[in-house]
C-alpha cells in the first residue's frame, strides 16, 4: 500500500473522486463519474508527480444493476497499481468517453468492451465488434445473457433462447429475471 499515492491523488483530483480512496494489497482504487474520465486520465498521465504512463487494462463490468468501466494504470512513481472505476453507466444505454485521445491502444480494448457489454465509447473512431461477427446482436458478458446449460440460474431451466437484443426486455429489479447481481460496495 502506498500512502503517499493516496495523498497525491487527493491533492490532484480533489472533488472528482467519488467516495473514499480504497487501498488493499498493491492496489489503490478510486471511483469517478463517467463524465470526468478524460479530465482524470489526462491529469493522472500528465502530472509530474503522478505520471501514469501505461494503461495496463480497460475492462467493462456489468454488476447486474449498472455498468462500470474499470481502468488499471501503472506508474514508475508508485509501487501500487491504480484502479479507476467509472460508474454508474445505465444498463439500457451505457455511454462513456473514450480514452483513445491519450492511449491509442485503448481502441481495441474499448472495442472489446463494446463487443461484450454494449458500452458505447464516445470518441472512439473504430467502435465495432472485434470478436463476434459483425451482424451479431447480443452482448455476451452481460449478466442477462445466460448460458444455455446454466440450468441453476436460468429461469427457463436452460432451455430457452439465451441471446437477447440490445435492450433487454427484463425489468432490472424483477427478482424473477434471474440476473446475478453484485452486492453494493
Amino acid at each position: 500500500m502506498d500512502r503517499t499515492l493516496k495523498r497525491r491523488l487527493e491533492a490532484r483530483l480533489g472533488a472528482q473522486i467519488q467516495g473514499p480512496i480504497r487501498q488493499r494489497h498493491d492496489q489503490t482504487e478510486i471511483r469517478i463519474q463517467p463524465g470526468d474520465v478524460p479530465d482524470v486520465l489526462r491529469t493522472l498521465h500528465d502530472s509530474v508527480d503522478l505520471r501514469f504512463e501505461l494503461l495496463a487494462d480497460l475492462a467493462g463490468v456489468d454488476t447486474g444493476n449498472e455498468m462500470q468501466v474499470v481502468y488499471h494504470l501503472w506508474s514508475e512513481t508508485s509501487p501500487d497499481w491504480l484502479r479507476i472505476i467509472a460508474e454508474p453507466l445505465s444498463r439500457e444505454d451505457p455511454r462513456c468517453p473514450s480514452a483513445t485521445f491519450l492511449w491509442t491502444g485503448a481502441e481495441w480494448l474499448e472495442r472489446e468492451a463494446y463487443d461484450m457489454f454494449g458500452i458505447v465509447f464516445e470518441g472512439n473512431r473504430d467502435l465495432r465488434r472485434i470478436f463476434m461477427p459483425p451482424d451479431y446482436t447480443s452482448f455476451p458478458l452481460r449478466k442477462d445473457f445466460l448460458l444455455p446449460d446454466d440450468a441453476a440460474r436460468s429461469p427457463g431451466e436452460g432451455v430457452r433462447n439465451v441471446e437477447r437484443p440490445f435492450a433487454p426486455a427484463v425489468v432490472a429489479d424483477d427478482p424473477a429475471a434471474g440476473i446475478r447481481r453484485a452486492p453494493a460496495s
Partner: peptide
C-alpha cells in the same frame, strides 16, 4: 508509441 499502445 509503445507506451501509447499499451505494448508490454
Amino acid at each position: 508509441m509503445a507506451l501509447r499502445f499499451g505494448v508490454t
